[in-house]
Amino acid sequence: MIALLQRVNFADITVDGSCIASMKNGVLAFIAFEKGDTAEKSRRMLDRILKYRIFSDSEGKMNLNVNEAGGNLMLVSQFTLAADTDRGNRPSFDPAMPPQEARQMYDELVAYARSVKPGVQTGEFAADMKIRLENDGPVTISLHI
């Protein structure tokens, strides 16, 4: 399982010309499920995202997690993070979990996220999303479990 975290000043998601999610100040987490990932692994990843200290404290050091910083969370499923880029000029998505299984994992992840952090915003699984964001820092972190 892969998560690409971006500390953002704002983020919003549009599908078919309609804004389906928006937030200010927080973490935008792009999530990729790989073959063999489990619900337990997914929950561990979310717990790690919420505890990851990428926000500055009063001394300017990255010592605060999203909750301590009063930030928001947005989750977006993005299978392309699981791309195998070892050979050639075209990525292979063989490591990615099949879409039907990944949709179930994503739905379970979102339900768990909302149970531990109210107000979680999400993308739409398998939709052609337009995501607008302002990366703060920039801070972008790749997590793997």
Rank of each mutant, 00 (worst) to 15 (best):
residue 114 R to P: 08
residue 57 D to Y: 07
residue 104 Q to L: 09
residue 44 R to D: 15
residue 36 G to N: 08
residue 96 A to M: 09
residue 21 A to G: 07
residue 133 L to R: 05
residue 37 D to M: 02
residue 121 Q to H: 02
residue 20 I to W: 03
residue 55 F to K: 05
residue 116 V to I: 13
residue 99 P to K: 02
residue 25 N to L: 04
residue 100 Q to F: 08
residue 21 A to Y: 05
residue 122 T to G: 01
residue 82 A to M: 02
residue 136 D to I: 01
residue 10 F to H: 15
residue 35 K to P: 11
residue 95 P to I: 04
residue 62 M to H: 12
residue 29 A to F: 11
residue 35 K to V: 15
residue 104 Q to R: 11
residue 90 R to K: 14
residue 88 G to E: 01
residue 64 L to W: 06
residue 113 A to W: 07
residue 32 A to H: 00
residue 136 D to M: 11
residue 30 F to T: 04
residue 102 A to Q: 12
residue 29 A to G: 11
residue 89 N to I: 02
residue 54 I to W: 06
residue 125 F to P: 11
residue 55 F to I: 07
residue 73 L to E: 14
residue 90 R to W: 08
residue 36 G to W: 00
residue 56 S to Y: 07
residue 9 N to D: 13
residue 120 V to P: 05
residue 133 L to K: 09
residue 33 F to K: 05
residue 38 T to I: 08
residue 101 E to L: 09
residue 113 A to F: 05
residue 74 M to Q: 06
residue 39 A to F: 06
residue 64 L to C: 06
residue 134 E to Y: 14
residue 40 E to A: 15
residue 104 Q to I: 08
residue 51 K to D: 15
residue 57 D to Q: 05
residue 126 A to E: 04
residue 13 I to E: 10
residue 59 E to V: 00
residue 126 A to T: 11
residue 103 R to H: 08
residue 13 I to S: 06
residue 114 R to V: 07
residue 21 A to I: 03
residue 76 V to I: 15
residue 111 A to L: 09
residue 23 M to H: 12
residue 43 R to I: 11
residue 122 T to L: 03
residue 12 D to I: 03
residue 106 Y to T: 02
residue 68 E to I: 04
residue 90 R to N: 13
residue 98 P to I: 00
residue 73 L to K: 00
residue 43 R to P: 01
residue 14 T to S: 06
residue 71 G to H: 05
residue 98 P to K: 04
residue 11 A to L: 07
residue 48 R to G: 08
residue 53 R to Q: 12
residue 84 D to V: 07
residue 14 T to M: 11
residue 68 E to T: 13
residue 130 K to H: 13
residue 86 D to F: 09
residue 92 S to V: 03
residue 69 A to V: 04
residue 16 D to M: 04
residue 100 Q to R: 14
residue 60 G to Q: 02
residue 105 M to N: 03
residue 103 R to C: 12
residue 40 E to K: 15
residue 80 T to V: 09
residue 71 G to Q: 05
residue 127 A to V: 04
residue 91 P to E: 04
residue 34 E to G: 09
residue 104 Q to F: 10
residue 78 Q to L: 10
residue 131 I to G: 01
residue 123 G to A: 06
residue 95 P to K: 05
residue 109 L to H: 09
residue 127 A to Y: 10
residue 33 F to V: 08
residue 33 F to C: 09
residue 86 D to P: 00
residue 100 Q to A: 15
residue 120 V to F: 06
residue 73 L to P: 14
residue 58 S to V: 13
residue 70 G to K: 05
residue 125 F to M: 10
residue 93 F to L: 13
residue 121 Q to T: 04
residue 135 N to Q: 10
residue 29 A to R: 02
residue 71 G to V: 04
residue 105 M to A: 12
residue 14 T to H: 11
